[in-house]
Amino acid sequence: MASLTINGRTYEIDAEPDTPLLWAIRENAGLTGTKYGCGVAQCGACTVHVDGQQVRSCSMALSEAIGKQITTIEGLASEGGVHKVQQAWIDHDVPQCGYCQSGMIMAVAALLETVPQPTDEDIDLAITNICRCGTFQQVREAIHAAASA
């Protein structure tokens, strides 16, 4: 049994220490907003924040996350609110199927914490999530909108 702090709440997780954080979040904590896409840190659909840093949770062991602050898409906004990245996503009608968007939004939120006014080049380097629907054009617009919000 391991204790994880997710979105400010403590979860007692009954899983092996080498269980990927993604599956501990989805199956043990029951928070399904974080998605499985590849399992090998290629696609970014599983992106969460661990102590404020973006992490591809499919490739971090549960044991490495113990004692750290984990934020998932469900906890990105303050209670009852909407995070500025989410608001920009809504304003710009970004998602198509939406499956990759939790990870995309988490990656962008982490970027804006360190680079509040990213250039297109900053975005290109930092946001490497795969979106098969191809929402990149709207993602870029929304990032700039969120940055100036």
Partner: peptide, 14 residues
Amino acid sequence: DTVEKTNGKMIYGA
């Protein structure tokens, strides 16, 4: 159907 796709609430088959 946008809002639920931005806050983790949209339920997919998985």
